[in-house]
Design a protein around this nucleic acid. Sequence first.
RNA 1: CGCGGGGUAGGGUAACGGUAACCCGUCAGGCUCAUAACCUGAAAAUUAGCGGUUCGAUUCCGCUCCCCGCAACCA
Length: 507
Amino acid sequence: MKFPFAFSVLTCRLINNMSKKDKRFYITTTLPYVNADPHVGFALEFIRADIIARFRSSLGEEVFFNTGTDEHGIKIFRKAEENGLDPQTYVDGIVGKFKNLIPLLNILPNVNFIRTTDKHHVLAAQEFWKIADKNGLIYKKNYSVKYCVGCELEKTDSELIDDKCPLHPSGKLEIIKEENYFFRFSIYQKPLLDLYEKNPTFVVPRSRLNEIQAFVERGLEDFSISRLASKMPWGIPVPGDEKHVMYVWFDALVNYISAVGWPHSPETFSKWWVETGGVVQYCGKDNLRQQAAMWQAMLMSVKLPPSKQIIIDGFVTGEGGVKMSKSLGNTIDPMAIVDEFGADALRYYVARELSPFEDSPFTLEKFKESYNAHLANGLGNLVSRILKMAETNNIVIPPTNMDIEASPEIVAIQERYVEGFDGYDIQRASNAIWDLISATDKIVQVREPFKKIKVDKDGATADIVELLVRLRIISRMLLPILPATSIEITKLLETNKMPTKPLFARK
RNA sequence: CGCGGGGUAGGGUAACGGUAACCCGUCAGGCUCAUAACCUGAAAAUUAGCGGUUCGAUUCCGCUCCCCGCAACCA
């Protein structure tokens, strides 16, 4: 659909979407595991998903944004034991810390928060199991578990070095045979490969699609989806077999559909899962297999359509790309950043300084550098200098100004912005805004309206009006990324006042 | 030879067959509306190394070296 030149790109998108009244968008984060306090990585992922959710909202789409907590499994069971609590009491106590992130990170307040211990989720997971079972995708077999006598714990191969427990290298590993339920993952090789081939943007970025494709091509093994309740009772009971509880993944992944009403509310489910083409799932690169392969096979096993897209983001690292770890002392605490600089400043850093898909470093030095350069000196200062001229000379922003809003320069910038978001390239979208900020600073310098006002009042007034209109465009584009700042700028423009306090004080 | 991703100015990244771009930092000049902010200009890169394809390679191919993930319950 083409629009007359007088409309900006964003306006076009808005109208386009309004014309399709039922345009909807479903996005979710991974559910973080609650065996520890909220992880930096999750905070960043939460912000990314929120930015995309807010962007879609700003286009007039109806958005369902999901997050929550993954609360079952052995690690939590042990953690609760360590703390002398029963598991439910333990998770009830910790879930608040995760919910607190919503106001702290300035996440959309209407975000859906699902807990895998929620009654409706538990029922959904059991129903999911029953259907998969009925469809012949679940079977029982003997499963060998390696057990370290020293640790008194079962060990997975990934926990072992040279087939020995790193904590007890001289100790013996016992092989315990246990009967478990298995999921016929192996038969989904072809369907999964078809899914990837049919939809080249199923996993973003492309390199991750290649990775999962190569993984699936090598062949799949059925995986265990239950645990003996006698050993590890903290899980959803397997329907019809009280001796087993579900393995945590088989339970947790189901949240993406139980959150939108599956199976008890077919209308809601259809509205958000079927009509939207599925969910957009944000997750870390360590979750690629679970989300892009296992979960998709699980959906196939109950004859539900696949997710829409899986967006894989990178990790944050310390200086020089080294892993963050407490022992190296290079961890960063997002909450400390929020305390000192505010949620928008953290959101800015995530959007503009972190690669949307690759690992990128996050240090306090880099954060401050970028904060001063682009928020204080860039955006904040621009707002002050323009509004000062407007306030002093009593120049008010017009309700619209299509000459500027639909100018080729603005249209090109907005195209880049929209394309960036469409491809989940938040950095590219943000760069478009900061290009506009810097071009606007240049206008002030070149035209010098502050000087011109003394000799050519009309000319200077026109310049200042243009600057105000550009500021309004900037403010609108900032809405998904810096929601609080965007609203603040809009308010200042409406009241024609320069900020009494700097928007972002230099640090 | 398990699989995958990388190595580009001091730092962080971009370009991915045709004069190596951007941000931060550094240095010099300009401006005074603004948060000592802003604008202009400069210095700074044999694009990890070696070889190949090509009229031409940062870009494609091969090898070597070095980093980093993953290897089935860590965003």
